[in-house]
């Protein structure tokens, strides 16, 4: 490594005045740089997108092969939304998106970068909100691409054997919109968990527990009084909104309004928790 003797640092222009206000454009720009400058981030997002496009194609293909064996009732109950967005397979997407969100905060705590960050920008609340803005933007774009792509591919896989259900149908658009929102929701919830837990492994475990272990654990026969809580879980709310079928719903489901409300409340609550946790605690 070569050594350079220190030369006096020239004063940057405009250093006097009110230059110490944290500007949103700059903070979001900084978080944008941080988000994309970790090699694992684009790789994770790319793998998730490719995987779910494939899963949608495969899911459509399974329906295509099964169709001749379906009874008329089963054919009548065909659900294009759940074919494109098969619930159990989407647990991994929720964990993936949640982990990406968690790492934006846990990654800063892991080494101590958070101290450098807050030494440069004492306005901690704005730093957290800038992170949330970047996460929301990136994950919404990814969510929309995956949602439209998955739906289109699953429809294409139906071939000429199964009646198609255009993406422009209101219930198909609802499924696409809900799926678009699911990704930023999971990412922001992951960020909120990490803001409280701080440790990477603990945050990722919490994401898994919340998104994967909790849903089957919650839905237990004999605890119907718990239904409003269960229905507010992102996976159940999203599952309700992605359904386009007209048959056999078993057990309690939320109304569409309740499902949309839950999907809106989760990210808002998560960001609020993150802002408070990061503002008040020593680092």
């Amino acid at each position: 490594m070569s050594l350079v003797t220190h030369t006096p640092v020239p004063r940057p222009p405009g250093r006097s005045g009110t230059a110490d206000r944290a500007r949103w454009r700059d903070l979001v720009g900084a978080e944008w740089i941080k988000f994309w400058s970790l090699r694992s981030t684009p790789v994770t997002l790319g793998v998730l997108a490719a995987l779910y496009l494939y899963l949608a194609w495969r899911s459509g293909g399974q329906e295509y092969r099964s169709w001749p064996h379906y009874t008329p009732e089963m054919r009548d109950g065909f659900d294009a939304g759940h074919t494109a967005f098969p619930g159990p397979e989407w647990f991994a997407m929720m964990v993936g998106a949640g982990t990406v969100g968690a790492l934006t905060v846990a990654g800063e705590h892991a080494g101590g970068l958070i101290r450098t960050t807050f030494t440069a920008v004492p306005a901690r609340g704005r730093v957290v909100l800038a992170k949330a803005i970047v996460l929301t933007g990136v994950m919404t774009v990814l969510g929309f691409a995956v949602a439209v792509g998955s739906y289109t591919l699953s429809q294409a896989a139906l071939g000429d054997r199964i009646p198609h259900h255009a993406v422009t149908q209101p219930d198909a658009m609802r499924a696409v919109a809900a799926t678009t929102l699911l990704l930023p929701l999971c990412a922001l919830v992951g960020m909120g968990l990490a803001a409280v837990i701080r440790v990477t492994a603990g945050s990722v475990f919490a994401v898994c527990a919340l998104f994967v272990l909790l849903p089957p654990g919650l839905r237990v026969t004999g605890r119907q009084w718990l239904d409003p809580v269960v229905n507010a879980h992102p996976w159940f709310a999203w599952g309700r909104l992605t359904g386009t079928g007209n048959g056999h719903i078993v057990g309690s489901v939320p109304s569409f309004t309740a499902a949309w409300t839950a999907m809106a409340a989760w990210p808002v609550a998560a960001v609020a928790v993150a802002v408070v946790a990061m503002r008040v605690r020593d680092v």
Binding site: P12, R15, A19, D20, R21, A22, D26, G111, G112, L113, I114, R115, T116, T119, A120, V121, P122, A123, R126
Partner: peptide
């Protein structure tokens, strides 16, 4: 709000 123009700090090389 932002501080680098006023205060520069190195607390730990691992930050």
């Amino acid at each position: 709000g932002v501080a680098l123009r006023h205060v520069g700090a190195l607390l730990s090389a691992d930050d």
